[in-house]
Design a protein around this nucleic acid. Structure first.
Length: 432
RNA sequence: UCCAGCGUAGCUCAAUGGUAGAGCCCCCGGCUGUUAACCGGGUUGUUGUAGGUUCGAGCCCUACCGCUGGAGCCA
């Protein structure tokens, strides 16, 4: 076959020309002497129309034999046609079967979640899964673009760490040349160091949580984007988060309408997302929950029903600000007006998708940090390097971390977080 | 770890304690515009495992295993 090879996503630019598409057979319908081949190539799906009188017996027989998910190279004339699912179709002139697939497990009918997850390596070829992972890519691109526009640079953080970042009960432990090492739960503390070197930085890292959580919102391996900025105070930090969320929503709405439609995502709630986001204090959030009939005492952290009550009261993402110091990490800067609370906020997504961002201003005063470490029983030796940052040119600084899969779930309107990542790692599940 | 629900054909599901079935997939045949195509025919089972109750168990009981959802914890 000749070389004028095109991607299906660009097919509209080749109207009236004979082109070659390399891909897989997504589905086939046949009506006597016409085969309708739904061809996918990773960039899109196009209908190939194969007419017996036009291609001859031999090629038509190939079209008869080709099965779902066989890899194929198809040659054809690009046409516009209202009867085709995408508006364009390929008048097939040639077909080459690269590999003939037998008994593809995922059929065009319904399957249960256990079966689909067992075949995740194949399931991601299906249109909805494909749409989700495209949107995920767009979200990640939007984050990179927004942060670079704001002057941040990407500085990777390590995944193997000698110590716990937060808590010790939910860590995955591994062996590092005879010493225990842990899979990182967050890159945050490391980018406090790179922030002191570069000013504004961020990192994409997987975060590992060995929690025995078995819900639609939990993974044991999730992706976080942590950002950190020197000379950034709490209010600026929140403004940056708000700007980033708006940039994500805008880009997904602009570039991924087809995928949102595939997912049957109602985009109206997304179109309402614009700055400024409401900000309520932890104290106000507690009062809101109690009024909404979801009781909680001051000093307790929010559970799933509280998330829903808080986020459900607003059409835009809402910041809950100034949590009590005792339920947050040791490094958070106390509020100068009320030292019992910290300059730390969580951002809750609308529509019940829960907490997607946690951020705070970090303690920059050496003595205060040492005091807080002692109070929280954080050992000094393994964190000596972290304390050093307060010893050598310490400045006020702030940062935040966003959970990528929760953001993807929200944007796509997913029922379960396992679909937001190509290979979900969940409680006692590691195949495929 | 705890609570609830569910395990029947490759998949999705039926089946008063009384002969295990349908649709899809797959195979054969038909159809020149299909849209999860359609129409006709065909193949497919140690009913999760082990024990128990019963004349008789897919169905009732016990234990175990697996799956799904939720709680706590968290993003």
């Amino acid at each position: 076959m000749k070389l004028d090879f095109v991607h299906i996503s660009d097919i509209g630019q080749h109207l009236g020309r004979e082109v070659t598409v390399k891909g897989w057979l997504y589905n086939k319908r046949s009506s006597g002497k016409i085969h309708f081949l739904q061809i996918r190539d990773g960039t899109g799906v196009i209908q190939g129309v194969m007419v017996k009188n036009e291609v001859g017996e031999e090629i038509f027989a190939l079209g008869d034999r080709v099965t779902q998910e066989s890899s194929i190279i198809v040659r054809g004339l690009v046409k516009e046609d209202q009867r085709a699912p995408s508006g364009y179709e390929l008048g097939v002139t040639g077909l080459q079967i690269v590999q003939l697939t037998q008994d593809y497990p995922i059929t065009p009918k319904e399957h249960g979640p256990a079966f689909l997850m067992e075949h995740r390596h194949l399931w991601m070829r299906s249109s909805k899964q494909h749409a989700i992972l495209r949107i995920r890519d767009t979200i990640e691109q939007a984050i990179h673009a927004y942060l670079h526009k704001e002057g941040f640079i990407h500085t990777p953080a390590p995944i193997l760490t000698p110590t716990a970042c937060e808590g010790t009960t939910t860590l995955f432990q591994t062996d590092y040349f005879g010493e225990p090492a842990y899979l990182s739960q967050s890159g945050q503390m490391y980018i406090e160091a790179t922030a002191a070197a570069f000013g504004k930085v961020y990192t994409f890292t997987p975060a590992f949580r060995a929690e025995k959580s078995k819900t639609r919102r939990h993974l044991t391996e999730l992706w976080m984007m942590d950002a950190e900025a020197s000379y950034f105070e709490h209010a600026e930090n929140m403004q940056c988060q708000e700007g980033m969320i708006c940039a994500i929503v805008e880009r997904v709405l602009n570039e991924r309408q087809f995928e949102l439609k595939t997912l049957e995502r109602d985009t109206k709630p997304l179109e309402r997302i614009r700055a400024p986001f409401p900000v309520i204090s932890y104290k106000e959030a507690v009062e809101l929950c109690n009024k909404a009939g979801v009781p909680i005492r001051y000093g307790e952290d929010f559970g799933a029903p509280h998330d829903t009550a808080i986020a459900g009261s607003f059409e835009r993402p809402v910041f809950v600000d100034r949590f009590p110091a005792e339920i947050k990490s040791f490094y958070m800067q106390p509020d100068p007006k009320d030292p019992s609370v910290v300059l730390g906020s969580d951002l809750y997504a609308p529509e019940g998708y829960g907490e997607i961002i946690g951020g705070s201003q970090r303690i920059h005063d050496l003595d205060l940090l040492l005091k807080k470490m002692e109070q929280h029983k954080v050992p000094y030796e393994p964190y000596k390097w972290y304390v050093d940052l307060r010893r050598y040119g310490s400045v006020p600084h702030s940062g935040f971390g966003i959970g990528i899969e929760r953001t993807v779930s929200w944007m796509c309107g997913l029922q379960h977080i396992r679909e937001a990542i190509p290979f979900a790692r969940m409680l006692e599940k590691i195949y495929p």
